[in-house]
C-alpha cells in the first residue's frame, strides 16, 4: 500500500493560498513530482512569477535578487535539491535575506531508491548546519500551517526557513506506479 497516509485536505491548494495571501511575488522551482500540483497552481496565478530553474542553487540567487528589489520569493524543491544549495545558503545567512523553502522529501519514509537515501536522511541536518530554520510536516493537514509559520519566521526574522514535507504526505514513489500511470 503506497498511498499517502493522510489525504484529508488538498495541501497544494491550501499552500498556494497561503503563498498568495502572504504576497509571494516570485516562485522558483525545479520540476518535481511531489510539488507538481503546487507548481501548476503557482504557474496559473498572475500574481506570482514562476521561474523554472535548471538547478536549485539558482533559486538562492533568484530569492536574494528578488528581495533586494522588494519582492518575496519562495523556492519549491525536492530534498535532493537541498544538496545543491548549500554554499549559496551562506549568502542568505550572511546578508540576512529572508527566503521560504518548501521541500518534498525523498529517501525518508518507505523510499525504494537507495540513491535518494543519503541526501534524504541528511536534509534537515544540512539545512540546520547552514542556519536554516526547519519545520517538518508529517501530515497533509499540517502543510499549509507549517508553510504559513515558516514564511512568517523567514520574513519576520530575515532568515531562511524550510518546511520539509514527508513522503508520508506525498506518497511513496515506485516505478511500478509510474509504469501504470
Amino acid at each position: 500500500m503506497n498511498a499517502p497516509v493522510a489525504t484529508d485536505i488538498d495541501w497544494p491548494l491550501a499552500t498556494h493560498q497561503v503563498l498568495a495571501r502572504l504576497g509571494f511575488g516570485v516562485v522558483g522551482y525545479v520540476p518535481d513530482a511531489g510539488h507538481k500540483r503546487l507548481i501548476e497552481l503557482c504557474q496559473a496565478d498572475a500574481r506570482m512569477r514562476s521561474v523554472v530553474m535548471t538547478t536549485e542553487e539558482e533559486g538562492i540567487g533568484l530569492a536574494a535578487g528578488a528581495w533586494l528589489g522588494g519582492a518575496k520569493c519562495a523556492l519549491l524543491m525536492q530534498s535532493s535539491g537541498v544538496g545543491n544549495i548549500v554554499n549559496a545558503l551562506g549568502m542568505v545567512h550572511e546578508c540576512r535575506i529572508p527566503v521560504l523553502i518548501v521541500v518534498t522529501m525523498r529517501g525518508e519514509y518507505g523510499e525504494f531508491n537507495p540513491w535518494q537515501v543519503p541526501m534524504g536522511q541528511a536534509t534537515a541536518e544540512v539545512l540546520r548546519a547552514m542556519g536554516v530554520a526547519v519545520q517538518q510536516a508529517n501530515a497533509a493537514a499540517e502543510v499549509p500551517a507549517h508553510v504559513d509559520a515558516a514564511a512568517r519566521l523567514a520574513f519576520g526574522g530575515y532568515c531562511a526557513a524550510a518546511v520539509l514535507i514527508s513522503q508520508r504526505v506525498i506518497g511513496i514513489k515506485s516505478f511500478q506506479e509510474q509504469a501504470e500511470q
Binding site: G25, R49, M53, I60, L62, G65, W67, L68, G70, A71
Partner: peptide
C-alpha cells in the same frame, strides 16, 4: 540569477 530576481522584482 541575482540579476534575474532583481529584474523581475523591479
Amino acid at each position: 540569477m541575482m540579476g534575474l530576481g532583481l529584474a523581475l522584482a523591479q
